[in-house]
Design a protein around this nucleic acid. Structure first.
Lengths: 170, 170
DNA sequence: CTGTACATGTAATACGTTACATGATTCA
DNA sequence: TGAATCATGTAACGTATTACATGTACAG
């Protein structure tokens, strides 16, 4: 939220829309969470209500303390590696289902990765012309998604071959 | 937990050790959670206390209902895609820090991915000779980790180059 | 006989989602 | 004037982490 407000003042409602679009696959957040967190950030002095509009709209602006906190989080806090993957967890137990089920599972993963790749390709094409700063660096994130999807597809196809070679467990 | 118990009966303590080692990077779980969940699974009829040992040890075994539920979860429930990445979220706001900070950030990501790749290579070498079923499919998961780390390293190096080309934001 | 590993359980806290609850403005 | 959008806030529930709390068995 500090990152978004660093791009200019916005209301909770404005932020919600960004969380539901650009940030949906990177850091989803619900309406409840956003309004609650905005209140906390205001308490902490990282943001202030800079203007009030119609329908009780509160427009928040980042403060200098907020900008300092954002920079701290960006550069001095190491991002935590992704901790949980249901897709990978299932792989650990593939020997507990039939070989056909195991191969089917890996096959579906390859397919869904390929589909994700196609979807991201479309989005990249659509965003190609945009030039605002969020889109500029957002493209780096999209490229990550594209490469990750390709890797997942290749891995799943390879794993499917490996599974086919395996002698079924007792 | 049903997946682990499908490999043979075990106590909460036994499961905890597996969660802290093999499954640590795929699906971490704490001691509190494991004991609580074991009680819930027993209530639901998916596991039973099959033997009691010294020091109040309770050895749980999976039931047929548990095996059916495991198979259902494995094959019929689509794994949820990974939702949150702090690493990628920061990329969206790279235009809010200096260009040197942005480049430094991406450079560190490339380095940490390369290091993760080296670490996983070592683990794969160490596990290569093992032949139990969990290790057999576990190797597919390790290979995923290896490929993901390589992709992350390549992407970060590319992104660093892209960032260097960008005109700094106002 | 002492430290380590084994072994389980609960309480407090934080975080996140869904659902509930309400109301104002704008545009067709 | 009715529907869509704008706009905020709280309550209930479930899940996850940390901390608290306790005790047994075994190996050196």
């Amino acid at each position: 939220m500090l990152g978004l407000l660093a791009g200019g003042p916005a209301s909770g409602y404005d932020l919600l829309k960004v969380f539901d679009t650009s940030l949906a696959h990177v850091w989803p957040a619900t309406q409840s969470q956003i309004y609650g967190e905005l209140a906390k950030l205001a308490d902490a002095g990282y943001v202030t209500v800079d203007a009030e509009g119609p329908r009780g709209r509160k427009e928040y602006a980042i403060t200098d303390a907020g900008r300092a906190e954002l920079r701290h989080w960006m550069i001095e806090v190491e991002p935590e590696p992704v901790r949980r993957s249901g897709m990978l967890l299932r792989v650990f137990f593939l020997d507990k289902v039939s070989r056909a089920d195991a191969i089917g599972y890996l096959h579906r993963q390859a397919e869904s990765a390929a589909e994700q790749h196609r979807e991201l390709s479309k989005i990249i094409e659509a965003v190609e012309s945009e030039d605002d700063p969020l889109a500029r660096y957002g493209r780096l994130a999209l490229e990550w998604g594209l490469r990750a999807a390709a890797t997942r597809a290749e891995w799943a196809a390879w794993a499917e071959g490996e599974a086919a070679k395996m002698i079924p467990a007792s």
